[in-house]
Design a protein around this nucleic acid. Structure first.
Lengths: 321, 321
DNA sequence: ATCCAAATTTGACTTTTGTCGAGAGCCGTG
DNA sequence: CACGGCTCTCGACAAAAGTCAAATTTGGAT
C-alpha cells in the first residue's frame, strides 16, 4: 500500500526523532515502516520546515568591529562575515550569514518586503526552510524580463516558498518607456494597493546596486551603459529596489526614476527592520549612499567592507571635528 | 596545543556544519582539528543552544479536538498529546510536547514565571537548550525543603540553565508557621520586590496539584494528610503555585493560604501567556478549577483528559440551556 | 621549579544514518 | 481492463557520525 505519505506521518516521524530523541530504527518500529522511509521523511521534514535547525549568529555581532560600526553608522545591528577565514568563497559565507540573520529577524505574522538582485537570490537559494504560514512576502519593485534566474518575482516567490509563506507578486514592469504611462500605472488600483502595502512591512530584505555597466539595470536592458554613465555624472551613487539614489541616499531627479514602478524610498524608511546585505567590495560608495539615506537599519557585510566603512566613518568624524 | 576550546571554536564548527552544510571531516580540515573534536564541539553547540533544533507543534494544535476545546473553554491555544499512540509512557510524551510548546512561546527579552512540581521538573529535564541570554526566569513561589529533586528553586534554575537565561530565585520558604510571620516576610523589600515583579512576566509555566494525600504539600510536610482532607471538605479543589484554590479557581479562605509566600492569583492572571501542563488523568477536577479561575490561557494535556474536558463542557452547556 | 589533577585531543572502533536502484501499489487513460 | 507513468517503499551497501580509552597538554598548587 503506497499511500501518499501524509504530512501526518512526516510529522510523527520528526516528532519521535527530534523531540523524543529516538533513533531512526526505533522510529521505524513505532510507525511500522522501514528505516529508509524514516530517513526520507526526516529529510522532508527538514525541507518543509516542520523541523527547524538554526544556528545562532551571535558570534558575528559579538565582533568588536561590528559594535563599533553600529555606533559609527547609527545602525541597529551589524553582522560581519570573516573574510576568507572559513571558506574559499567569501560571498557564499556572507549569503549564508544573511540567510540566518534574515530568519532570525522574521517573526510570526510579519509582512516582508523583498527586492531583487544576485545577492538576494543567492540568499533565497541557500536559505533553509521554515514553517511560517502566517507570513507574507511582498515584492518591492516591478519586474524585469531578465535573462537571469533572479528576477524580482522569482526572488519573492523563492523566499515565500522556503518560508511556507504567502508570496505577493507585483504585476507590473520595473521600468516603462514614458513617465505618463508610469504615472498611470501607479494609479491603477491593483498596483496602487500593493505600493501602499509596502509601508506596512515589518522587515525588508535588499542589497544595493552599483552604478556601472555591470549593473543589472544595464544587463537587463532597462538602461544603456551610456545612460548609466551619464546618470553617474549627474550624481547617481547606487541602485536600490530598482531606483537610483544619489550620495545622500535620496532619489535622483531623473527621467529614469520617474518611469520606475517600485517602492518609494519614503515607504521603505517606514519599515521597522531594513536588512541590507552587501557581498561585493566594489559596492562601497553605493552602500555609503544607502546608509546616508537611512535605507538600512541592519547590515550584513564582509570583514573587508566593514573595515573600509569603519575607516571612512573615522576620517569623516575627524574632518567634522 | 590544547587550548580551552573557546566558545569561538564551537561556534565556528557549528556554523560550518549546520549553516554551510559541510561534513564533519570537512569542518575538521577547515579548523585543523580532528573529526572527533568536531563531533564533540557540535554536541556542545547543541547543548548550549548555539544551534537550535525545534520541531513544529502544529500537528498537536491542528487536531479537531484541540480546536473545539479552545472554543469550549475559551483558551488561546490547546495542544493534545495523543495518548499511547507513540510511546509506552504517555506522560513523557506530554512533557516533551510541553517543552516544545514552551520554547515556541518564549520570546527574546521575556520574563518567565515558573512554578514547581513533578510535571514542571520533568519538562525542565527534557527541555532542549536554547540561547536566550536576555530572558529572565523567575520563581513563582517560595521554597520547600523537599526530599525530591523538583524543588521550586531547582525547577527555576534548571529551566534558566537550559535557556542560558538569568534565573531569579525566591529566598523564602513556601509556608510559614504563623500568619504574622508570613505577612512580615511578604513586606520585606527583597521579597516584596520579587512578588511585585511577577505581574511583569510575559509567560508563566505551571501545572496543577491535586488535593489529596499524594500532594507534594503533604509529602513535603507543609500540610498533614488530615489537614489536606479537611481543606478538601472546606472546598479545596486544587493547588497552584503552592496555593489552594476552590472549584471556582479563587483562593480558598484558609489559614494555610494566609501563611504562604507565593505569587498571588491576581498577579498570575495579569501574565499574558499562562501555560498549564497536566499529565495525570486524576487531575481533572483541579484542572477544571484552574480553568474556571482563568489561571490558564494555553493548555497542554493528553488525549484522554482532553476528551473528558470536552465531555464536561458539553454537559455543562446542556444544563445551562 | 616540578608535579598533579583536570580537561582536551586524538585514532580506532562501533553504531547510526544517507542513498540508490529495484519492486510494488495507485490512478488516470486509451 | 490493461497499460504506462507516477510515487512510495524497502533492502543492502556506503558514508558519516558517535564513542571510548589512552595520550597529551594545561593551569594551578606545592
Amino acid at each position: 500500500m503506497a499511500i501518499r505519505p501524509a504530512e501526518q506521518l512526516i510529522h510523527k516521524a520528526a516528532w519521535l526523532y527530534y523531540a523524543h530523541g529516538l533513533r531512526q530504527d526505533e522510529v521505524a518500529n513505532q510507525l511500522n515502516i522501514s528505516r529508509a522511509s524514516v530517513a526520507m521523511y526526516l529529510r522532508k521534514a527538514r525541507e518543509t520546515g516542520i523541523v527547524n535547525i538554526s544556528t545562532s549568529t551571535q558570534l558575528f555581532t559579538d565582533d568588536v568591529m561590528a559594535r563599533r560600526l553600529e555606533d559609527a553608522l547609527k545602525l541597529d545591528a551589524v553582522w560581519i562575515a570573516p573574510e576568507n577565514a572559513y571558506l574559499a568563497d567569501p560571498s557564499t559565507d556572507i549569503a549564508v550569514l544573511a540567510a540566518s540573520v534574515f530568519l532570525e529577524l522574521v517573526r510570526k505574522g510579519d509582512r516582508i518586503g523583498v527586492a531583487w538582485g544576485r545577492t538576494v537570490y543567492t540568499i533565497a537559494d541557500i536559505m533553509s526552510y521554515a514553517d511560517l504560514q502566517d507570513v507574507t512576502v511582498v515584492q518591492l519593485c516591478g519586474n524585469l524580463g531578465a535573462p537571469y534566474s533572479y528576477r524580482p518575482d522569482q526572488c519573492t516567490m523563492e523566499i515565500a516558498r522556503r518560508l511556507n509563506a504567502k508570496g505577493l507578486n507585483f504585476y507590473a514592469p520595473l521600468v516603462l518607456s514614458t513617465e505618463d504611462l508610469a504615472q498611470g500605472l501607479r494609479a491603477e488600483p491593483v498596483i496602487r494597493d500593493q505600493l501602499a502595502g509596502i509601508s506596512d512591512c515589518d522587515l525588508a530584505l535588499y542589497s544595493i546596486g552599483a552604478v556601472d555597466a555591470d549593473s543589472h539595470l544595464v544587463k537587463c536592458g532597462a538602461l544603456t551603459a551610456a545612460e548609466m554613465a551619464a546618470l553617474r555624472r549627474e550624481g547617481a551613487a547606487g541602485v536600490i529596489a530598482g531606483q537610483i539614489i544619489d550620495a545622500g541616499g535620496e532619489l535622483l531627479d531623473c527621467s529614469y526614476n520617474r518611469r520606475v514602478i517600485s517602492a518609494g524610498l519614503a515607504s521603505l524608511r517606514v519599515i521597522g527592520k531594513r536588512l541590507m546585505v552587501v557581498q561585493e567590495d566594489s559596492k562601497f560608495e553605493p552602500l555609503l549612499a544607502a546608509i546616508a539615506g537611512g535605507l538600512c537599519t541592519h547590515l550584513v557585510v564582509g570583514a573587508r567592507m566593514a573595515q573600509r566603512l569603519l575607516d571612512h566613518a573615522g576620517t569623516s568624524a575627524e574632518k567634522a571635528s
